[in-house]
Design a binder for these strands. Structure first.
Lengths: 225, 225
DNA sequence: GCATATATTTGCGTATGCGTTAAAGAATGC
DNA sequence: GCATTCTTTAACGCATACGCAAATATATGC
């Protein structure tokens, strides 16, 4: 696990990482346009690696390249949220079912349980950022245990797309108490090998999240984030 | 519908289209390596657009860029088939359910029905290529009716990934008679608004296809295609 | 002979330059 | 005024150039 291998990283990779950060942090606002040359200058590199990074991020659904308009940070509308949560609901609960069928031991599930206890502690302390981080780990680990790398890749990509929206709603929503119970329920179901329960609990979990988020966005008239 | 708009198309777009064709046709064999400069020369353009195209196709799961080894056409293993069909099964049957709930009229479903009758005719005439083409249309149209653009995009991408494998197995497998019945069943269920039936029939349909294909690959010792 | 060190090759990552062309502004006609 | 055409501008698409580093070939030591 100590393969630091800190090789200098290519400019394209740096550009991808930095642009992602700028998007997630909101420094590049949703809907805003940015010329390739401006981005290149601000990142201290030429247009070529910025363009390649933009192409990659476009395929991940974070950006849109509009010739002569600049690179546009894609906003997320309530309808986008619906689409994304529909996919997350179906694929993650499938992964939960598969994980339950796989017969994992306590060791395999250590990371998953850790994410849950972290969430519980964060919730007690009302540290929402820490909760969100652990929640992200829970879902990533769940799909990993599902044993389908494509599902994992899709889920991670879609989670990136709604990251900003989640961050802004984090302080608007009620404390995710129910959410935590559901996580625990999914975990227990996988542990005892109950595939149907794992699927159904997780399915309900994501449906609740979707409903709550979309209502929140519409109540606050947030047509895009 | 007559917006030909035959604008000259950028070199990058040409490269994407042509490389896709070369991959699907097998002219660029699975697992084969190709230098960027070779591809550029054979396409009559410089490395830049080829690189951009390769980056795009890499994000679609068709290629892999391995520095100094060349651009590699990704082979599809039986396990890849399992993963891909698992995703297709879940997302398409969700789309079928949604399509059934949407209350479409005959007009909305014309393209779907057309794909089915085309498959039936192709099957009678034992024209497998034509059958495969219409089958592709059926699945693309189904997810379109599902009303979730992300599902449509994912499904189309994954179908591209297994296109070569499907083409090679097309003549090894029994005539897809059952398949046609299932298509018809899904169509009827959507038409009468029976969401559960639409979901379940399509789910079974894809599970059958997955099972048949994987068994076929393993029986013929096709470890990658 | 085999292992290691050194030299050479060459493909890629990135910078740079330029022609094309879409968009914005100015000018003209109505 | 408003629409239309002409002019200007500048961002992008792509070609090209080049240094670096990985891969291969060659040389050297044991």
């Amino acid at each position: 696990m100590t393969d630091q291998a800190d090789k200098p990283l290519t400019s394209t990779q740096r550009a991808i990482n930095e642009l992602r950060q700028l998007i997630f942090s909101g420094e590049l606002a949703a809907g805003s346009d940015h010329l390739e040359s401006e981005l290149a200058e601000s990142l201290g590199m030429s247009r070529t690696p910025v363009r390649e990074a933009a192409l990659t991020l476009e395929s991940q659904g974070l950006l849109e390249l509009r010739p002569r308009k600049g690179v546009r940070v894609l906003p997320v509308s309530p309808d986008d949220m619906r689409e994304i949560y529909e996919v997350l609901t179906e694929l993650e609960s499938y992964a939960a079912r598969q994980a339950a069928s796989a017969g994992y031991g306590a060791k395999d599930m250590a990371a998953l349980e850790r994410a849950i206890t972290d969430m519980e502690h964060a919730l007690d302390a009302e540290e929402l950022e820490a909760w969100a981080e652990a929640d992200g780990r829970f879902h990533a680990e769940l799909v990993r245990l599902g044993g389908n790398s494509r599902i994992a890749a899709i889920v991670n990509m879609l989670n990136d797309q709604v990251r900003r929206a989640r961050a802004t709603t984090l302080y608007m929503r009620p404390l995710p108490l129910r959410s935590n119970e559901e996580h625990r329920g999914v975990f227990e179901a996988i542990k005892r090998g109950d595939a149907t329960a794992a699927h159904d609990i997780h399915h309900a979990h994501r449906r609740h999240a979707k409903k709550m988020l979309i209502e929140l966005l519409e109540r606050h008239r947030l047509r895009s984030l």
